[in-house]
């Protein structure tokens, strides 16, 4: 066994830095505020992370396939507004599938542009971020959307309901995480996602239809966004047009924090769930120690930078290196 040299510590930090940082945060928050590890607080954090988490599950597929999705925040606003609007027009039973269909269309469009036309995903989804925002505002006329009679509908169950004492959003998150986790880890499709992200050319040379895989990833991402929009709408029964604004970066932060590489080819659903929880607990901890809510935006940025740095540090096994 080699002793604890400076080099060994550096290399350990490089590999496990995220977990170490998370542990330090947790210890710090617990010492600063005893309520932090309170079961109610923990449940609250998980519950409020569920929307972000559901979106992150879909984005995990996209990132592993070697692409980005910056449109999920604005797409989530779209889903929320659409389902709220349709709720009063055609009733929840029809509004929900209609909203899912429309959101999937958006996902299909992105998937077509990135997968089949091979356009750069950063540009496509950045453009879609703005385009979908415009679409949402056009749909709503710029007004907030509210369900007229909040007492008379069962629509609240997805956001506010509980089954055997567990909030429904958490159940949805857990169910979706299990199913998508199995798909990614165990099915031929999942294997192809890793292959396409790891080396798209080699995947093509192995007879994998790369465009179809990328397309499917965006479709799954938009399905997750629609689910998140449903939870959001159901929880608040009313919404602004900008409800999902900025979430795309938090989602990406959670996925990278979990250890998926931005270059594609690595990451797992389980790790993304960990990433989501880390982000949720840190944001909650910051509130509990009495910092303003807005500090979160800055801290989220710091976390993203830290995660990206540690991601490359882990690859080269050093925190810093003169060559890439």
């Amino acid at each position: 066994m080699s002793g604890l040299t400076k080099q060994n510590i550096g290399s350990f930090l490089a590999r496990q830095g995220i977990l170490v940082a998370f542990a330090l945060f947790m210890i710090g928050f617990t010492l600063a505020n005893g309520r932090f590890l309170d079961p109610d607080n923990v449940m609250g954090v998980v519950r409020s992370s569920a929307i972000l988490g559901v979106m992150a599950l879909g984005v995990t597929f996209v990132v592993i396939s070697g692409n980005l999705d910056l449109s999920v925040g604005s797409m989530m606003s779209f889903s929320t507004i659409v389902v709220l609007d349709l709720h009063d027009k055609i009733g929840p039973t029809l509004a929900i599938p209609a909203m899912f269909a429309l959101t999937l269309c958006l996902g299909a469009l992105i998937g077509f542009l990135v997968g089949y036309l091979k356009l750069n995903s950063l540009i496509v989804t950045l453009g879609m971020l703005s385009a979908i925002h415009g679409l949402t505002l056009t749909w709503s006329g710029g007004k907030n959307m509210d369900i007229a009679d909040k007492e008379a509908t069962w629509f609240g169950i997805f956001g506010q309901g509980e089954i055997i004492g567990i909030p429904v959003p958490i159940l949805i998150f857990a169910l979706l995480a299990s199913v998508l986790g199995l798909i990614l880890a165990k099915t031929p499709f999942g294997r192809k996602v890793y292959a396409v992200g790891g080396n798209g050319t080699a995947a093509t040379f192995s007879g994998i239809r790369r465009a179809r895989v990328v397309f499917s990833c965006y479709l799954m991402s938009s399905f997750c966004v629609a689910t998140a929009g449903l939870i959001q709408a159901s929880r608040s029964m009313g919404s602004q047009n900008t409800v999902g604004q900025g979430l795309e970066l938090e989602v990406l932060a959670a996925v990278i924090l979990g250890g998926a590489s931005l270059l594609g080819g690595s990451g797992t659903i389980f790790k993304t769930v960990i990433g989501v929880l880390i982000l949720g607990f840190i944001q909650n901890g910051l509130l509990l120690v009495g910092l303003q809510f807005y500090v979160q935006y800055v801290v989220t940025w710091v976390i993203i930078i830290l995660a990206v740095w540690l991601d490359i540090a882990a690859k080269r096994g050093k925190l810093w290196s003169p060559i890439a």
């Binding site: 031929p188 294997r191 890793y194 080396n199 050319t201 080699a202 040379f205 192995s206 080819g265 690595s266």
Partner: peptide, 27 residues
Amino acid sequence: QGLVLGMNCRDNMTLPQVSDLTAGPFV
């Protein structure tokens, strides 16, 4: 063109036929 370097040996080898090597929905 030939290999996904970040994947393990087995997965690289079975990549072209992974869709046929299933038990139920899973590989």
